[in-house]
Design a protein around this nucleic acid. Structure first.
Lengths: 307, 307
DNA sequence: TGGATTTCATATCTTGATGTTATGAAGCTA
DNA sequence: TAGCTTCATAACATCAAGATATGAAATCCA
């Protein structure tokens, strides 16, 4: 208050600056002067002139005023999701293959939002959602396995493909026969991953009982490297392969395999409200996946790129 | 409050730091969180752990806390007279000859007190005392001319001497005869000064009607310089000559002249309380003059220095 | 795991700061 | 001196914040 009076030079304008009334300011000032027992303004001067002490203390008041305004700004930024942190969990292949690119775009727009990325599968991430360690989990899940305190928003239907390097012998044929597939070695995802389950069911589906695993347990980029340097095959989410299409490194066999009963979605905790930054991240991911869906549709109607 | 909680790590200790009660702090905090609609501390954690936003805002709180403590310190310094300003007025000869040395000693002790020195005679200084432009006036005054709103503290009885250079012919004689004095020229103080009145009355008293003024209107140092370079005489306050005794430049004739009816004292305004710094200055001057009186007494009982 | 301890939240009452409007007093200016 | 501006005060309402007592829940330790 002292700062406002000194800054504006009068009670009336000072009150205006503070959004209060002149009498209120007047009384607050006289209470202060009475309390400290020292005059902060020269007496009987109508455009209220500060004492030297008044000026000195007003300088401290300025600091307080600015710290308050700072606080308001910080709060506004936080409320707007321009500040804060979002803790995003997900399976390694989805995070590395699809999500991290989206998060990069988000961070370009909102550089002051910190994003903590956590790799894990459902068993790891669901407890973290529950105890508040995680804001979002992006997982392929079966609807029946979702706890009731979890909110699930589907962002992509489950769809896997058999992946191979660009230029793989099988991609040159018009149609792929099951017998041909059996000849190639397989790359297996980590055994605790849902993809591994998918791989097994795909192989069962197409009747391959004896399969050779040439590599297993690697990350997406490791898997891609192996794929590119060999004729091995693996099962990958369609969206992951789609996102890599511009690199001209990994392709997919034009054979339709059964869709998994898991669907990719965003899991959040119903009980705790997301902080604004995390909300923004969630919205961003939703939007990006909508765009991705549209893009998939567009491209698959095209004849140029054929999954 | 937020800062205190974050700093101390708990409500209990934070309340202790602020000198308030734990329930009060608790409620204030929950009111704040309710008002801004954001959690500042993680829920259901017993040694209360701040959110990232809580930490950020606490940093602003720290600034506020420090500004408040700064203010307290500034105020304490001011109250103790270690800070502030004292506006001291006085006649040029007294200020230059006696007071300024005392003020120098004061400033050595309290370097943060600003002293504004104002030269003037009674007619100039009394109005300034009245309108608050001046804190203290150190003047030789007649008791009857003191306004009733003025507080007067005598610090030295009025006493003038006839001054001359050290080694002046008149100082070599055992006793000075009036006839001898008439031969020497006179230095006159500024005509509007009380000393000028004193000079006239002294000359009248010792029966000199025709006197030659060789110099007039100068400051004390100018007067002293003229005295030292000639055999001229002048009338000076005894205390001024006494203070100059160590310079071995100006001496006094051993002839007693009538004391003026003015007495040196400190004038202040009864209506307005002195600020602490000015009070300290007043006390200091009073003490110094007490010491000066004692010193005068001691030295005058000595035979070495003879006024 | 269960009791002891610590830490925080809530209830209730009191006090004082701050807000509002109406109005008067006093300094400033032309 | 008249008029304008600026501040102070009164009366009332509201609410933040202080105190004490006490309960609830998390944490710690045996």
């Amino acid at each position: 208050m002292l700062y406002a009076i000194v800054e504006k030079g009068s009670l009336t304008e000072g009150a205006e600056m503070l959004g209060t009334s002149q009498p209120s300011l007047s009384r607050s000032l006289s209470q202060l002067e009475k309390r400290i027992g020292v005059a902060l303004f020269e007496p009987d001067r109508r455009p209220l002139r500060p004492t030297e002490l008044g000026l000195t203390l007003a300088a401290e008041g300025r600091k307080i005023f600015q710290a308050r305004r700072n606080s308001s700004d910080i709060l506004a930024q936080y409320r707007d999701g321009k500040t804060g942190a979002a803790r995003v969990g997900g399976t390694p292949f989805f995070l590395d293959g699809v999500i991290s690119g989206m998060l990069a775009a988000f961070q370009f727009e909102r550089p002051d939002v910190r994003i903590d990325q956590v790799y894990g599968y459902m068993n790891d991430l669901i407890p973290k959602l529950q105890d508040g360690t995680l804001d979002l989990a992006i997982l392929p899940v079966r609807a029946s396995t979702i706890p009731d305190w979890c909110r699930f928003e589907q962002i992509l239907p489950g769809r896997n493909v058999i992946a191979c390097r660009v230029g793989h012998p099988l991609t040159r044929k018009g149609s792929v026969k099951l017998a041909d597939i059996g000849k190639y070695p397989w790359i297996a995802p980590p055994t605790d991953s849902p993809l591994y389950q998918d791989l097994r069911s795909v192989l069962k589906e197409i009747g391959i009982k004896d399969f050779k695993v040439s590599f297993s347990g690697g990350s997406l980029s490791a898997t891609a490297n192996i794929l590119m340097g060999s004729d091995a095959l693996t099962v990958l989410p369609f969206s992951v392969v789609f996102m890599m299409r511009n690199q001209k490194s990994v392709s997919a066999l034009s054979i339709r395999i059964g869709d998994p009963d898991r669907h990719l979605g965003i899991l959040t905790n119903w009980d705790t409200e997301l902080n604004p930054a995390a909300q923004r991240v969630r919205n961003h991911i939703r939007n990006e996946f909508e765009a991705l869906s549209a893009s998939i549709l567009r491209v698959s109607q095209d004849t140029v790129w054929r999954p």
